[in-house]
Design a protein around this nucleic acid. Structure first.
Lengths: 258, 258
DNA sequence: ACAAAAGTGTTCCCCCTACACCCATGC
DNA sequence: GCATGGGTGTAGGGGGAACACTTTTGT
């Protein structure tokens, strides 16, 4: 606990020796579980609201590397599907008053002209991860890290609700071009599960048979001999992504929309 | 000339009082003329290369406002189609050595730890403008401002070639969703002219008749009673965009691809 | 046996593609 | 009148949307 306090103090008053001022990033980390789109959020201390996992950019790393780092710290995962999608630069998006208030609550002395009291521009990233594999971890700057149903995130700090909205919109558009399921589902999955994912992202139902035909036509799925047993009713086949074809589709894009 | 020098000195050594450090923007300004896609470039002093018009963000403006300002300064235009499309953050994209060398050439003393010697992250914007209406204007930081054929820009400074490439790619993708012609053509234009624009952007030829049908099916064009006279052969109809439908299409997107 | 879910097939129709034809204008 | 380019029409095919039937499994 003492360490934590010191680490925080160090970060706040000397962070600008390592990080670039004025620039931050926020990650909208999507997962999929129980037929629900999930977002990973952090609980801010001394504030009853939650926030997107975010961070700053070290002087010797790119935005992408910084986002990867943040993602790894919060989920333990590497090699994640991660895309920048928008820069948020409203003048009043940072809230210096709130920051100082929070620091007072923590009993931390903030020097005049502290780098964190400046205006910050944030680059929004969105990530798709396997809900089962991610291990949410809070950091020294938060007291909890949890998955939330996308439609139940409540009021978040700053413009984070807006950022999530933009991320979702972007993902919906990209769904037409990118083979998105690979990142959100476990290695093996059934066609109905994949369909549920698409329906959830798009917010509408799709025809079972047409979905299957269209998806298979992309040629990025391999059907396994196994079936998912245990559930009631007929056991569906398991599929997995054909990595080679998947990579190709990532580069060249799919066609046709939903 | 004396004023200019002073303005430059002021900007270089006191710019950080007005602008945010570490953050810049670059505009890929597209025009269309003589069946060619054009890009507006600036000639850097003491360097035989050209550069994208760019700028920095005032402490009290958004990225979008900053880009608008830069665009207005270089073209005299307002209310331009302008979109951010990517953040460029390679660690070595800025070239401090080159900057200091340039300052020496100008005979300007650069203080230690000058804000412009820091690493900069740049937000790429692309703009579509009416070639006829834009009036290229160089600024105090450049000695010329001219249109270049897109496929003839040569080697630009920093990562500006890469930025143009990414902008073009983005525009090609957006062509499927956005009614792009409105911004690049004069108010009245013929169907063959619009088609040439699309062919130029896509880099391939399209069927004349199918193009016309598809374009008209979008319902964003109004055919006028006038025809374009003077040319050889049959006089083609003139069209203009139906602003109401165009705005709607901007928001909701078109469908179908090329 | 029955309900519910999953696999497979079929029809229809629209839209995209690829053409053919006619009309206008300048030489 | 002829070449060239522009306007309009049409036949064909592929793919998406809508729907029927069979198969499997747990209760």
């Amino acid at each position: 606990m003492m360490e934590q306090k010191q680490e925080m103090h160090e970060f706040i008053n000397r962070g600008d020796e390592h990080f670039m001022a004025h620039i931050s990033l926020d990650c909208v980390i999507f997962g999929f579980h129980a037929n629900q789109l999930k977002v990973l959020l952090l609980k801010i201390r001394h504030d009853d609201r939650w926030a997107l996992p975010g961070g700053f950019v070290l002087k010797e790393e790119t935005m992408e590397e910084a986002a990867d780092r943040v993602l790894n710290e919060r989920t333990g995962l590497n090699d994640i599907f991660l895309r920048q999608f928008h820069v948020f630069s409203d003048i009043h998006r940072s809230n210096t008053e709130k920051f100082l208030e929070l620091m007072r609550s923590e009993g931390i002395v903030v020097e005049e002209n502290n780098w964190l009291t400046k205006r910050f521009i944030s680059v929004g990233f969105y990530a798709l991860v396997d809900y089962e594999k991610a291990i949410p971890a809070e950091g020294w700057d938060s007291e909890a890290c949890e998955w939330f149903d996308l439609d139940n995130v409540g009021e978040l700090i700053l413009d984070h609700n807006k950022i999530i909205g933009a991320a979702l919109e972007t993902m919906r558009r990209q769904l037409n071009f990118l083979p998105i399921g690979y990142n959100l589902l476990p290695e093996k999955f059934t066609m109905p599960e994949l369909q549920k994912l698409y329906e959830t992202i798009l917010g509408k139902t799709l025809d079972r048979r047409n979905f299957q035909r269209k998806m298979l036509a992309y040629g990025i799925l391999d059907r396994l001999d196994e079936r998912r047993k245990g559930g009631a009713h007929k056991a569906p086949y398991l599929y997995k992504f054909n990595l080679e074809q998947y990579q190709k589709a990532l580069k060249e894009g799919l066609q046709g929309g939903w």
